[in-house]
Amino acid sequence: MSHGPRVTITYCTQCRWLLRAAWMAQELLSTFEEEIAEVALVPTHGGVFRIDVDGTAVWNRKRDGGFPDAAELKQRVRDVIAPDRDLGHADRTTTDRTTTDDAPAGSEPGR
């Protein structure tokens, strides 16, 4: 049994956000399997979607404007529970990635 932090995902049942909350719980449990003690899903009403780590709000839909993507959520949780941990690909933004698709418009790869 782990003795790490408790993550609480509070979601609106009227808005049908259970699947979103469960998916985010799965993402966090998969990424922080050694650090997190538990993830609780807490149903409520009124358009609430909030993610807390030991009572500290890391995401609030109303405050933060919508829903986090998985990478941003993992970064925010990491910053609270394991600030020195490298998240690998989740720490890189799309502007940090370089692909062959980054060629200027109108140019062809290899030319």
Rank of each mutant, 00 (worst) to 15 (best):
Q14P: 00
E72P: 02
W59K: 02
R16E: 14
L29Q: 15
A22I: 01
C15W: 00
A21W: 09
E33C: 13
R111D: 10
E34G: 04
P43H: 06
G110Y: 02
A103F: 07
I51A: 03
P83R: 08
A21G: 05
Q14Y: 03
V53A: 06
Q14N: 12
R61L: 10
T98I: 15
F32E: 08
G66S: 06
T93E: 14
R85W: 10
I81V: 15
G47S: 10
G106R: 02
C15Q: 03
G65D: 14
T56I: 12
D54Q: 11
R63H: 13
K74L: 14
V80A: 09
L18I: 05
E35A: 10
R85C: 09
G4N: 14
A25D: 02
R97Y: 01
T99D: 07
R61F: 02
T10I: 02
V7G: 06
D91F: 13
R76F: 08
Y11T: 03
I36T: 06
R76T: 10
I81G: 10
G110N: 04
C15R: 03
E38A: 14
V58Q: 01
A105P: 01
T8M: 07
R16V: 03
R97P: 02
D52H: 04
R111S: 09
E27G: 00
S107C: 00
D102L: 00
F49D: 03
S2R: 14
L73P: 05
T13S: 04
G88Y: 11
L41V: 11
R76D: 10
V53N: 06
I36G: 01
C12V: 05
R61G: 04
A82T: 12
D84R: 15
E34V: 07
W17P: 02
N60R: 14
M1V: 11
I36F: 02
Q14D: 13
E38N: 07
W17K: 00
A25F: 01
L18G: 01
K74F: 06
K74W: 04
A90D: 14
G106A: 02
Y11H: 11
G65A: 11
D54Y: 12
T44E: 12
W17Y: 04
W17M: 01
V48S: 05
T31A: 12
D84L: 15
R61Y: 04
P68V: 00
D91L: 10
F67R: 03
G47R: 08
R111M: 04
V80L: 13
Y11C: 00
V7D: 05
L18K: 05
I51H: 02
T31E: 12
R78I: 14
G4W: 09
R16L: 10
P83A: 07
